[in-house]
Amino acid sequence: MKRKQSFLLGNCLMVTGMAIMVISIAYNICNHVFQLNLPEYLARVSHKTNLGTLIKQGFAQ
């Protein structure tokens, strides 16, 4: 893989990860603030994908 291709692939993966984090935070906020009664399973999964939560769980163990 050439340098330019690996650079573009890395940027695409970074944008995908950032989008997943933003969507999961928005999902949690909407679920808690507006009481939308969205599936609790998805709320737990999106809460665990947030970096801050992962760091806190790592320090708690």
Rank of each mutant, 00 (worst) to 15 (best):
residue 17 G to L: 12
residue 53 T to H: 13
residue 43 A to F: 11
residue 13 L to F: 04
residue 14 M to S: 08
residue 27 Y to W: 08
residue 2 K to A: 06
residue 56 K to I: 14
residue 8 L to R: 12
residue 46 S to D: 00
residue 13 L to H: 04
residue 37 N to Y: 07
residue 58 G to E: 07
residue 10 G to T: 02
residue 38 L to V: 09
residue 35 Q to L: 08
residue 42 L to Y: 11
residue 31 N to S: 07
residue 17 G to Q: 03
residue 37 N to H: 04
residue 22 V to C: 06
residue 57 Q to M: 15
residue 16 T to R: 13
residue 31 N to G: 03
residue 12 C to M: 10
residue 23 I to K: 02
residue 17 G to N: 01
residue 5 Q to W: 03
residue 43 A to M: 06
residue 26 A to V: 10
residue 6 S to N: 10
residue 58 G to Q: 04
residue 9 L to E: 09
residue 5 Q to H: 07
residue 13 L to G: 02
residue 13 L to S: 02
residue 9 L to Y: 07
residue 36 L to I: 04
residue 50 N to F: 05
residue 35 Q to A: 08
residue 34 F to Y: 11
residue 34 F to G: 01
residue 24 S to P: 00
residue 50 N to S: 14
residue 43 A to N: 08
residue 15 V to N: 04
residue 49 T to Y: 02
residue 40 E to D: 08
residue 34 F to I: 10
residue 38 L to C: 07
residue 32 H to Q: 11
residue 59 F to T: 10
residue 28 N to E: 05
residue 1 M to A: 09
residue 31 N to Q: 11
residue 58 G to F: 14
residue 25 I to D: 00
residue 56 K to H: 11
residue 33 V to G: 01
residue 19 A to F: 04
residue 55 I to K: 13
residue 5 Q to K: 09
residue 44 R to A: 06
residue 24 S to M: 02
residue 58 G to A: 09
residue 60 A to S: 12
residue 26 A to Y: 03
residue 33 V to C: 06
residue 23 I to N: 01
residue 57 Q to K: 15
residue 54 L to A: 10
residue 8 L to M: 13
residue 48 K to F: 12
residue 49 T to K: 00
residue 4 K to H: 07
residue 5 Q to R: 12
residue 1 M to E: 03
residue 22 V to F: 03
residue 8 L to Q: 12
residue 59 F to K: 14
residue 29 I to Y: 09
residue 23 I to H: 03
residue 17 G to H: 02
residue 59 F to I: 15
residue 55 I to M: 01
residue 53 T to A: 11
residue 60 A to E: 11
residue 38 L to W: 10
residue 16 T to S: 08
residue 17 G to V: 03
residue 12 C to K: 14
residue 4 K to R: 07
residue 32 H to S: 12
